[in-house]
Design a protein around this nucleic acid. Structure first.
Lengths: 195, 195
DNA sequence: ACCTGAACACCGTTCAAGT
DNA sequence: ACCTGAACACCGTTCAAGT
Protein backbone atom coordinates (compact mmCIF):
# COMPACT_ATOMS: atom_id res chain seq x y z
CA UNK A 1 0.00 0.00 0.00
CA UNK A 2 1.25 3.43 -0.92
CA UNK A 3 2.44 5.75 1.85
CA UNK A 4 -0.15 8.33 0.85
CA UNK A 5 -2.99 5.88 1.42
CA UNK A 6 -1.53 4.67 4.68
CA UNK A 7 -1.46 8.28 5.89
CA UNK A 8 -5.13 8.74 4.96
CA UNK A 9 -6.07 5.52 6.71
CA UNK A 10 -4.17 6.47 9.86
CA UNK A 11 -5.86 9.88 9.89
CA UNK A 12 -9.30 8.27 9.52
CA UNK A 13 -8.58 5.85 12.37
CA UNK A 14 -7.43 8.66 14.66
CA UNK A 15 -10.49 10.71 13.70
CA UNK A 16 -12.80 7.82 14.57
CA UNK A 17 -11.28 7.13 17.93
CA UNK A 18 -10.54 10.60 19.23
CA UNK A 19 -12.21 13.24 17.11
CA UNK A 20 -10.63 15.89 14.92
CA UNK A 21 -8.36 17.14 17.67
CA UNK A 22 -6.71 13.72 17.84
CA UNK A 23 -5.64 13.91 14.20
CA UNK A 24 -2.23 15.50 14.78
CA UNK A 25 0.47 15.15 12.18
CA UNK A 26 2.71 13.74 14.87
CA UNK A 27 0.22 10.97 15.73
CA UNK A 28 -0.37 10.25 12.04
CA UNK A 29 3.35 10.05 11.38
CA UNK A 30 3.90 7.79 14.35
CA UNK A 31 1.09 5.45 13.26
CA UNK A 32 2.69 5.16 9.82
CA UNK A 33 6.21 4.78 11.13
CA UNK A 34 7.41 8.01 9.54
CA UNK A 35 8.41 11.38 10.96
CA UNK A 36 5.84 14.00 11.92
CA UNK A 37 6.55 16.17 8.91
CA UNK A 38 6.77 13.47 6.25
CA UNK A 39 3.03 13.93 5.45
CA UNK A 40 3.91 17.33 4.00
CA UNK A 41 5.43 15.52 1.02
CA UNK A 42 1.99 14.04 0.27
CA UNK A 43 -0.41 16.79 1.37
CA UNK A 44 -0.30 20.55 1.32
CA UNK A 45 -1.12 20.79 5.01
CA UNK A 46 -3.21 19.23 7.76
CA UNK A 47 -6.48 20.53 6.31
CA UNK A 48 -5.70 18.94 2.93
CA UNK A 49 -5.16 15.63 4.69
CA UNK A 50 -8.55 15.87 6.38
CA UNK A 51 -10.10 16.74 3.03
CA UNK A 52 -8.57 13.59 1.55
CA UNK A 53 -10.29 11.54 4.26
CA UNK A 54 -13.60 13.23 3.43
CA UNK A 55 -13.18 12.72 -0.31
CA UNK A 56 -12.48 9.01 0.13
CA UNK A 57 -15.68 8.51 2.13
CA UNK A 58 -17.75 10.67 -0.20
CA UNK A 59 -16.72 8.61 -3.22
CA UNK A 60 -17.62 5.41 -1.36
CA UNK A 61 -21.07 6.75 -0.50
CA UNK A 62 -21.69 8.00 -4.01
CA UNK A 63 -20.83 4.59 -5.42
CA UNK A 64 -23.27 2.93 -3.01
CA UNK A 65 -26.08 5.23 -4.14
CA UNK A 66 -25.41 4.53 -7.79
CA UNK A 67 -25.37 0.78 -7.25
CA UNK A 68 -28.62 1.02 -5.33
CA UNK A 69 -30.26 2.85 -8.25
CA UNK A 70 -29.69 -0.21 -10.43
CA UNK A 71 -31.27 -2.70 -8.04
CA UNK A 72 -34.69 -4.11 -8.85
CA UNK A 73 -36.80 -2.65 -6.08
CA UNK A 74 -39.76 -0.32 -5.67
CA UNK A 75 -38.67 3.34 -5.95
CA UNK A 76 -39.58 4.14 -2.34
CA UNK A 77 -37.72 1.09 -1.08
CA UNK A 78 -34.63 2.14 -3.03
CA UNK A 79 -34.81 5.65 -1.61
CA UNK A 80 -35.30 4.40 1.93
CA UNK A 81 -32.37 2.04 1.56
CA UNK A 82 -30.11 4.83 0.30
CA UNK A 83 -31.01 6.98 3.27
CA UNK A 84 -30.35 4.08 5.62
CA UNK A 85 -26.89 3.66 4.10
CA UNK A 86 -26.19 7.28 4.89
CA UNK A 87 -27.52 7.01 8.43
CA UNK A 88 -25.53 3.85 9.01
CA UNK A 89 -22.38 5.72 8.01
CA UNK A 90 -23.29 8.47 10.46
CA UNK A 91 -23.87 5.98 13.26
CA UNK A 92 -20.66 4.03 12.65
CA UNK A 93 -18.40 7.01 12.03
CA UNK A 94 -19.91 10.13 13.63
CA UNK A 95 -16.68 12.12 13.47
CA UNK A 96 -16.15 11.33 9.82
CA UNK A 97 -19.78 12.15 9.09
CA UNK A 98 -19.47 15.58 10.66
CA UNK A 99 -16.20 16.20 8.85
CA UNK A 100 -17.79 15.38 5.52
CA UNK A 101 -21.22 16.93 6.02
CA UNK A 102 -20.93 19.57 8.74
CA UNK A 103 -17.43 20.97 8.71
CA UNK A 104 -17.06 24.52 7.44
CA UNK A 105 -13.46 24.31 6.29
CA UNK A 106 -14.01 21.10 4.38
CA UNK A 107 -16.94 22.64 2.49
CA UNK A 108 -14.64 25.40 1.24
CA UNK A 109 -12.50 22.87 -0.65
CA UNK A 110 -12.99 23.12 -4.38
CA UNK A 111 -12.58 20.46 -7.02
CA UNK A 112 -12.63 16.78 -6.30
CA UNK A 113 -14.74 16.95 -3.14
CA UNK A 114 -17.34 19.20 -4.76
CA UNK A 115 -17.63 16.80 -7.68
CA UNK A 116 -17.99 13.74 -5.44
CA UNK A 117 -20.62 15.50 -3.32
CA UNK A 118 -22.60 16.55 -6.38
CA UNK A 119 -22.49 13.03 -7.79
CA UNK A 120 -23.88 11.66 -4.53
CA UNK A 121 -26.66 14.23 -4.49
CA UNK A 122 -27.61 13.58 -8.13
CA UNK A 123 -27.89 9.85 -7.48
CA UNK A 124 -30.23 10.61 -4.58
CA UNK A 125 -32.30 13.09 -6.62
CA UNK A 126 -32.80 10.43 -9.28
CA UNK A 127 -34.33 8.09 -6.71
CA UNK A 128 -36.63 10.90 -5.53
CA UNK A 129 -37.73 11.49 -9.13
CA UNK A 130 -38.64 7.82 -9.51
CA UNK A 131 -40.77 8.02 -6.38
CA UNK A 132 -42.62 11.05 -7.71
CA UNK A 133 -43.25 9.29 -11.02
CA UNK A 134 -44.64 6.39 -9.02
CA UNK A 135 -46.86 8.85 -7.13
CA UNK A 136 -45.50 7.99 -3.71
CA UNK A 137 -44.00 11.43 -3.12
CA UNK A 138 -45.68 14.82 -3.64
CA UNK A 139 -45.45 16.57 -7.00
CA UNK A 140 -43.21 19.49 -6.16
CA UNK A 141 -40.04 20.29 -8.15
CA UNK A 142 -37.74 17.23 -7.88
CA UNK A 143 -34.48 18.99 -6.97
CA UNK A 144 -36.23 21.01 -4.30
CA UNK A 145 -37.83 17.93 -2.77
CA UNK A 146 -34.54 16.04 -2.96
CA UNK A 147 -32.79 18.95 -1.28
CA UNK A 148 -35.37 19.14 1.46
CA UNK A 149 -35.30 15.41 2.02
CA UNK A 150 -31.52 15.41 2.16
CA UNK A 151 -31.52 18.33 4.57
CA UNK A 152 -34.03 16.60 6.85
CA UNK A 153 -32.13 13.36 6.95
CA UNK A 154 -28.88 15.24 7.47
CA UNK A 155 -30.54 16.96 10.41
CA UNK A 156 -31.49 13.62 11.94
CA UNK A 157 -28.05 12.09 11.44
CA UNK A 158 -26.18 15.17 12.62
CA UNK A 159 -28.33 15.33 15.74
CA UNK A 160 -27.30 11.79 16.52
CA UNK A 161 -23.66 12.25 15.53
CA UNK A 162 -23.40 15.30 17.77
CA UNK A 163 -24.99 13.49 20.71
CA UNK A 164 -28.28 15.41 20.79
CA UNK A 165 -30.73 12.62 20.00
CA UNK A 166 -32.62 12.44 23.27
CA UNK A 167 -35.81 10.43 23.66
CA UNK A 168 -37.40 13.33 25.53
CA UNK A 169 -37.24 15.19 22.27
CA UNK A 170 -39.30 12.61 20.45
CA UNK A 171 -36.44 10.63 18.92
CA UNK A 172 -35.98 6.92 19.03
CA UNK A 173 -33.28 6.66 16.40
CA UNK A 174 -32.45 7.90 12.93
CA UNK A 175 -34.01 4.89 11.19
CA UNK A 176 -37.31 5.59 12.95
CA UNK A 177 -37.08 9.27 12.04
CA UNK A 178 -36.51 8.51 8.37
CA UNK A 179 -39.47 6.13 8.28
CA UNK A 180 -41.70 8.75 9.91
CA UNK A 181 -40.46 11.40 7.50
CA UNK A 182 -41.22 9.34 4.41
CA UNK A 183 -44.61 8.37 5.78
CA UNK A 184 -45.62 11.94 6.53
CA UNK A 185 -44.32 13.09 3.16
CA UNK A 186 -46.08 10.37 1.22
CA UNK A 187 -49.35 11.27 2.97
CA UNK A 188 -49.49 14.37 0.81
CA UNK A 189 -49.19 12.63 -2.54
CA UNK A 190 -51.69 9.82 -3.11
CA UNK A 191 -53.62 7.12 -1.26
CA UNK A 192 -50.44 5.15 -0.57
CA UNK A 193 -50.31 6.48 2.98
CA UNK A 194 -51.79 5.17 6.22
CA UNK A 195 -50.02 3.28 9.02
CA UNK B 1 -20.22 44.83 33.53
CA UNK B 2 -18.71 41.93 35.38
CA UNK B 3 -15.42 40.46 34.17
CA UNK B 4 -17.07 37.09 33.69
CA UNK B 5 -19.62 38.52 31.25
CA UNK B 6 -16.97 40.51 29.43
CA UNK B 7 -15.02 37.29 28.92
CA UNK B 8 -18.09 35.55 27.49
CA UNK B 9 -18.78 38.45 25.19
CA UNK B 10 -15.19 38.55 23.95
CA UNK B 11 -15.28 34.80 23.28
CA UNK B 12 -18.52 35.14 21.33
CA UNK B 13 -17.08 37.97 19.23
CA UNK B 14 -13.95 35.97 18.44
CA UNK B 15 -16.08 32.96 17.58
CA UNK B 16 -18.18 35.01 15.18
CA UNK B 17 -15.26 36.53 13.37
CA UNK B 18 -12.82 33.66 13.17
CA UNK B 19 -14.45 30.39 14.15
CA UNK B 20 -13.75 28.18 17.13
CA UNK B 21 -10.02 28.07 16.47
CA UNK B 22 -9.85 31.84 16.94
CA UNK B 23 -11.18 31.59 20.49
CA UNK B 24 -7.84 31.28 22.26
CA UNK B 25 -7.57 32.19 25.91
CA UNK B 26 -4.77 34.56 24.96
CA UNK B 27 -6.96 36.44 22.48
CA UNK B 28 -9.86 36.50 24.95
CA UNK B 29 -7.62 37.84 27.69
CA UNK B 30 -6.16 40.47 25.43
CA UNK B 31 -9.64 41.62 24.32
CA UNK B 32 -10.64 42.03 27.97
CA UNK B 33 -7.42 43.70 29.02
CA UNK B 34 -6.44 40.86 31.35
CA UNK B 35 -3.76 38.20 31.24
CA UNK B 36 -4.19 35.01 29.22
CA UNK B 37 -4.78 32.87 32.27
CA UNK B 38 -7.10 35.15 34.19
CA UNK B 39 -10.16 33.42 32.63
CA UNK B 40 -9.28 30.34 34.69
CA UNK B 41 -10.56 32.21 37.73
CA UNK B 42 -14.01 32.37 36.10
CA UNK B 43 -14.19 29.14 34.11
CA UNK B 44 -12.91 25.65 34.64
CA UNK B 45 -11.19 25.57 31.27
CA UNK B 46 -11.57 26.66 27.64
CA UNK B 47 -14.37 24.21 26.97
CA UNK B 48 -16.38 25.57 29.92
CA UNK B 49 -16.01 29.06 28.48
CA UNK B 50 -17.38 27.91 25.13
CA UNK B 51 -20.23 26.18 26.95
CA UNK B 52 -21.05 29.48 28.66
CA UNK B 53 -21.35 31.14 25.25
CA UNK B 54 -23.68 28.38 24.11
CA UNK B 55 -25.81 28.57 27.25
CA UNK B 56 -26.26 32.32 26.91
CA UNK B 57 -27.53 31.96 23.34
CA UNK B 58 -29.74 28.99 24.18
CA UNK B 59 -31.49 30.92 26.94
CA UNK B 60 -32.08 33.84 24.57
CA UNK B 61 -33.63 31.55 21.96
CA UNK B 62 -35.77 29.76 24.51
CA UNK B 63 -37.13 33.10 25.75
CA UNK B 64 -37.98 34.10 22.19
CA UNK B 65 -39.95 30.91 21.65
CA UNK B 66 -41.90 31.37 24.87
CA UNK B 67 -42.78 34.95 24.02
CA UNK B 68 -43.92 33.87 20.57
CA UNK B 69 -46.26 31.32 22.11
CA UNK B 70 -48.17 34.09 23.81
CA UNK B 71 -48.70 36.19 20.69
CA UNK B 72 -52.14 36.30 19.11
CA UNK B 73 -51.51 34.55 15.81
CA UNK B 74 -52.68 31.44 13.99
CA UNK B 75 -50.84 28.33 15.27
CA UNK B 76 -49.06 27.68 11.98
CA UNK B 77 -47.97 31.33 11.75
CA UNK B 78 -46.53 31.11 15.27
CA UNK B 79 -44.65 27.94 14.44
CA UNK B 80 -43.28 29.33 11.21
CA UNK B 81 -42.16 32.48 12.99
CA UNK B 82 -40.36 30.48 15.66
CA UNK B 83 -38.51 28.48 13.02
CA UNK B 84 -37.56 31.69 11.24
CA UNK B 85 -36.11 33.06 14.48
CA UNK B 86 -33.93 29.98 14.69
CA UNK B 87 -32.85 30.20 11.07
CA UNK B 88 -32.08 33.90 11.43
CA UNK B 89 -29.80 33.06 14.34
CA UNK B 90 -28.08 30.47 12.17
CA UNK B 91 -27.63 32.92 9.32
CA UNK B 92 -26.29 35.74 11.51
CA UNK B 93 -24.05 33.63 13.71
CA UNK B 94 -23.16 30.39 11.89
CA UNK B 95 -20.25 29.55 14.19
CA UNK B 96 -22.32 30.06 17.30
CA UNK B 97 -25.13 28.01 15.78
CA UNK B 98 -22.83 25.07 15.13
CA UNK B 99 -21.34 25.36 18.59
CA UNK B 100 -24.78 25.23 20.17
CA UNK B 101 -26.45 22.70 17.90
CA UNK B 102 -23.74 20.64 16.22
CA UNK B 103 -20.74 20.47 18.52
CA UNK B 104 -20.09 17.12 20.16
CA UNK B 105 -18.21 18.37 23.20
CA UNK B 106 -20.82 20.99 24.01
CA UNK B 107 -23.58 18.36 23.93
CA UNK B 108 -21.75 16.39 26.61
CA UNK B 109 -22.16 19.24 29.10
CA UNK B 110 -24.67 18.44 31.79
CA UNK B 111 -26.87 20.75 33.81
CA UNK B 112 -27.68 24.27 32.77
CA UNK B 113 -27.25 23.76 29.04
CA UNK B 114 -29.38 20.63 29.02
CA UNK B 115 -32.14 22.45 30.85
CA UNK B 116 -32.06 25.45 28.51
CA UNK B 117 -32.11 23.16 25.46
CA UNK B 118 -35.05 21.17 26.83
CA UNK B 119 -36.99 24.35 27.59
CA UNK B 120 -36.48 25.55 24.02
CA UNK B 121 -37.63 22.24 22.61
CA UNK B 122 -40.73 22.12 24.83
CA UNK B 123 -41.77 25.59 23.72
CA UNK B 124 -41.48 24.43 20.11
CA UNK B 125 -43.39 21.20 20.76
CA UNK B 126 -46.24 23.22 22.26
CA UNK B 127 -46.58 25.20 19.04
CA UNK B 128 -46.61 21.95 17.05
CA UNK B 129 -49.38 20.63 19.30
CA UNK B 130 -51.50 23.73 18.62
CA UNK B 131 -51.07 23.18 14.89
CA UNK B 132 -52.23 19.60 15.19
CA UNK B 133 -55.26 20.66 17.21
CA UNK B 134 -56.03 23.14 14.45
CA UNK B 135 -55.68 20.32 11.93
CA UNK B 136 -52.91 21.97 9.93
CA UNK B 137 -50.34 19.31 10.75
CA UNK B 138 -50.76 15.51 10.55
CA UNK B 139 -52.04 13.57 13.55
CA UNK B 140 -48.95 11.66 14.57
CA UNK B 141 -47.58 11.74 18.15
CA UNK B 142 -46.76 15.38 18.97
CA UNK B 143 -43.27 14.92 20.42
CA UNK B 144 -42.25 12.76 17.47
CA UNK B 145 -43.51 15.29 14.96
CA UNK B 146 -41.85 18.11 16.86
CA UNK B 147 -38.61 16.16 16.92
CA UNK B 148 -38.77 15.45 13.23
CA UNK B 149 -39.62 19.04 12.40
CA UNK B 150 -36.78 20.29 14.56
CA UNK B 151 -34.35 17.84 12.97
CA UNK B 152 -35.38 18.89 9.48
CA UNK B 153 -35.02 22.57 10.18
CA UNK B 154 -31.71 21.92 11.93
CA UNK B 155 -30.58 20.12 8.80
CA UNK B 156 -31.45 23.10 6.64
CA UNK B 157 -29.75 25.61 8.94
CA UNK B 158 -26.67 23.47 9.48
CA UNK B 159 -26.30 22.98 5.74
CA UNK B 160 -26.24 26.72 5.35
CA UNK B 161 -24.04 27.37 8.38
CA UNK B 162 -21.50 24.86 7.10
CA UNK B 163 -21.49 26.38 3.62
CA UNK B 164 -23.21 23.50 1.80
CA UNK B 165 -26.39 25.22 0.64
CA UNK B 166 -25.86 25.14 -3.11
CA UNK B 167 -28.61 26.01 -5.56
CA UNK B 168 -27.66 22.98 -7.68
CA UNK B 169 -28.89 20.92 -4.78
CA UNK B 170 -32.34 22.47 -4.87
CA UNK B 171 -31.83 25.08 -2.17
CA UNK B 172 -32.66 28.74 -2.40
CA UNK B 173 -32.36 29.56 1.27
CA UNK B 174 -33.44 28.26 4.65
CA UNK B 175 -36.61 30.37 4.73
CA UNK B 176 -37.71 28.83 1.43
CA UNK B 177 -36.89 25.36 2.70
CA UNK B 178 -38.93 25.84 5.87
CA UNK B 179 -41.93 27.06 3.87
CA UNK B 180 -41.70 24.07 1.55
CA UNK B 181 -41.36 21.71 4.50
CA UNK B 182 -44.46 23.04 6.26
CA UNK B 183 -46.44 23.00 3.03
CA UNK B 184 -45.54 19.40 2.22
CA UNK B 185 -46.25 18.36 5.82
CA UNK B 186 -49.61 20.11 5.97
CA UNK B 187 -50.61 18.38 2.72
CA UNK B 188 -50.97 15.19 4.69
CA UNK B 189 -53.33 16.51 7.35
CA UNK B 190 -56.46 18.17 5.96
CA UNK B 191 -57.69 20.24 3.00
CA UNK B 192 -55.59 23.23 4.06
CA UNK B 193 -52.95 22.30 1.50
CA UNK B 194 -52.62 23.19 -2.18
CA UNK B 195 -50.22 25.70 -3.73
C1' DA C 1 -11.41 36.95 45.58
C1' DC C 2 -8.86 38.13 41.54
C1' DC C 3 -4.88 38.64 38.80
C1' DT C 4 0.14 38.07 36.90
C1' DG C 5 4.54 35.99 34.83
C1' DA C 6 7.16 32.13 34.11
C1' DA C 7 7.20 27.53 32.88
C1' DC C 8 5.74 22.95 30.65
C1' DA C 9 4.15 19.91 27.17
C1' DC C 10 2.05 19.98 22.83
C1' DC C 11 0.90 21.62 18.20
C1' DG C 12 1.41 23.03 12.80
C1' DT C 13 4.71 24.55 9.80
C1' DT C 14 9.30 25.63 7.71
C1' DC C 15 13.88 24.60 6.29
C1' DA C 16 18.41 22.84 5.55
C1' DA C 17 20.21 18.53 4.95
C1' DG C 18 20.41 13.70 3.82
C1' DT C 19 19.27 9.10 0.53
C1' DA D 1 11.08 11.65 -5.08
C1' DC D 2 10.87 10.92 -0.24
C1' DC D 3 12.30 11.45 4.37
C1' DT D 4 14.62 13.43 8.83
C1' DG D 5 15.89 16.56 12.87
C1' DA D 6 16.10 20.98 14.59
C1' DA D 7 13.88 25.19 15.08
C1' DC D 8 9.96 28.73 15.41
C1' DA D 9 5.72 30.66 16.85
C1' DC D 10 1.59 29.43 18.97
C1' DC D 11 -1.50 26.85 22.11
C1' DG D 12 -3.92 25.19 26.90
C1' DT D 13 -2.84 24.51 31.44
C1' DT D 14 -0.42 24.77 35.96
C1' DC D 15 1.71 27.07 39.73
C1' DA D 16 3.99 30.09 42.85
C1' DA D 17 3.54 34.66 43.90
C1' DG D 18 1.42 39.12 44.35
C1' DT D 19 -2.90 42.71 45.77
Amino acid sequence: MKTRDRIIEAAAALLDSGGEAAVTLRAVGHACGISHNAPYKHFEDRSALLAAVAIRDCVTLSDSFEKLGKERLKPLAKLEKALQVLSQYGRDYPHRYQLLFSDRDIAMQEGELQRAAMAAFSALAELVGECQAGKVLPRVPTVELAGLLYASVHGLIDLQASGRMKTEKGFKDVRHGITLLLRVLSMGSASTGAK
